[in-house]
Design a protein around this nucleic acid. Structure first.
Length: 191
DNA sequence: ACGCGCGTTCTAA
DNA sequence: TTAGAACGCGCGT
């Protein structure tokens, strides 16, 4: 059964929902997705629609892992920690990236994006160059369908002309690009 | 501002 | 299941 853990970071106007799975017999959690919302209203309407299990019912081990995960993200949002992907390798967390990026195309895009370090940026164009494709819009779509933003840092991919571009395909374009900019500033990126 | 290109997803047979 | 239309965190002109 899919569980959720809602987290409201300080220093940033956003609601984070971790979607994950915990098998009581095991000691690890599997992260299925990270949803980011502008308002509590949007977040709660998602939760109402999905009927997910809350952490409150979870086991002690599960709670500890989630607490550590929350700490990593809070440190990220306060600028203390820049590389979430490597930080969570220390925790009992699995991502199953290959299940999340099934096609060859999205898998190669994802691998290029993971190579972009905090503080650096790339562009849809550059990624296309590296993977031998001119499907720049399709690369954008692959990023949009990234279920675990922040961990797979699609926010470090900008437009070739220097504009920041979209983020996560939300309806509020102003909010999403502002969020993308905030993340890049946290990481010390020049753009 | 418009046309294009191309992987993915949606839709209709 | 399969063709084809529609859709996009874009690019070039």
């Amino acid at each position: 059964m899919l569980s959720y853990y809602l987290f409201k970071p300080k220093n940033i106007k956003a609601i984070i929902i971790f979607l994950y799975n915990f098998d009581g017999k095991k000691t690890k959690i599997l992260i299925h997705g990270i949803n980011i919302y502008k308002t509590e209203k949007e977040a709660s309407s998602y939760l109402n629609e999905k009927k997910l299990k809350s952490l409150v019912e979870g086991s002690q081990v599960e709670k500890e892992i989630l607490e550590n995960l929350r700490l990593i993200f809070q440190k990220y949002f306060s600028g203390e920690l820049k590389d979430i992907y490597h930080a969570i390798q220390e925790l009992n967390i699995e991502l199953h990236l290959k299940e999340k990026f099934r096609t060859d195309f999205s898998w190669s895009v994802m691998n290029e994006i993971l190579n972009v370090k905090p503080g650096e940026t790339t562009s849809y164009y550059k990624i296309g160059k590296k993977i031998g494709s001119r499907a720049y819009r399709a690369i954008g779509n692959a990023c949009k369908s990234n279920p675990i933003p922040l961990i797979v840092p699609c926010h470090r991919v900008l437009k070739k002309n220097g504009e920041v571009g979209g983020f996560m395909g939300k309806t509020d374009k102003v909010w999403e690009t502002n969020l993308k900019k905030k993340l890049l500033k946290l990481e010390g990126a020049k753009f």
